[in-house]
Amino acid sequence: MIALDVDGLRKEFTSRSGPPWRRRRETVTAVDGVSFSIPAGEIFSLLGPNGAGKTTCIKMLATLLIPTAGSARVLGHDIVKEEQAVRRLMTAVLPGERTLFWKLTVRENLRYFAALYGLDRAFTDRRIDELTSFFGVAEKLGALVEKLSTGQRQKVVLCRALLPDPALILLDEPTLGLDPHAARSLREMIRAIRDQGKTVLLTTHYMYEADELSDRVAIIHNGRIVCMDSPAVLKRSLNANKIIRLETDVWPHECTMAFDRRFPGNDAVAEERDGQMHVTIMVRSGEIAIGELAGMVNEYGAMITTVRVEEPSLEDVFIEMTGERVESADAEPLLV
């Protein structure tokens, strides 16, 4: 069964700028013809840098925004024509720390939101007990939300999202702002939600998070999906056995040319960050001996400070597909 079917979803925003007598209209396409389907019981991630269109996409699916074109159906219900039916089948967790009422207790918050979901009191109280026990916040039911840690608040937000027992949950950057321990704990919870048979659509710009959690990932860049599959297949599609990451003080252009001559069929991508050159080498053909590589780099007056040999990651897939790093995709083009 298909939980969510998205077809050619597009969103344009029009803004006006300049003085009233010389008003200019500017149209920005935030999401540009995105299509995907999520079978029931899957964790599907939209992965991309800030500004890629993930949040706009999720806001359309959450019925907060109306698409400019295209359509999406939640268990067969159209998100525009049947918005109320969609809102009963799906809940959304949008980013931001203050999606709960801080001056209400956890129980008061959950009862309040249950009333807005149209749930009856007996069902609500049973569900609150189940969910707060499941997420380990049952002992906080009487505490004001302002007294909770960020991680505990995020768990209460998930309790809120699961109150009406939805078929589909949209999670927009759920671990943003959490410390590593809380983020890890929350990822375990998200997997447990999937194990209960729920479908989860997740947006994140953390590559490891998408890799660790998702059954399938769509990499989104400039409002378009550039590739989509399971993390394992995406990494295999790189056609690289391993990745060598070098940090050097310099990486002259001649070095790249020499690399191409010496190690044909392999790719080296270099970028400057924090005053260091970071070189990513995708080993696609044969083996590259580190000693030989270091010797070649030294010939050009460069000094290697760090060498790491890793399995390909989703970040490498992203770089391969877009030519940019996730953190710097908004601004810095790569030096090659």
């Binding site: 806001k59 959450a62 019925t63 907060l64 109320q84 809102r87 009963r88 809940t91 959304a92 949008l94 931001g96 720390e97 203050r98 999606t99 709960l100 009422f101 939101f113 807005l116 979901y117 149209g118 809120r160």
Partner: peptide, 13 residues
């Protein structure tokens, strides 16, 4: 300003 607006607007109420 409280941050609960978007959540309310995605609910069936």
């Amino acid at each position: 300003t409280r941050g609960t607006f978007d959540t309310h607007w995605t609910m069936p109420v």
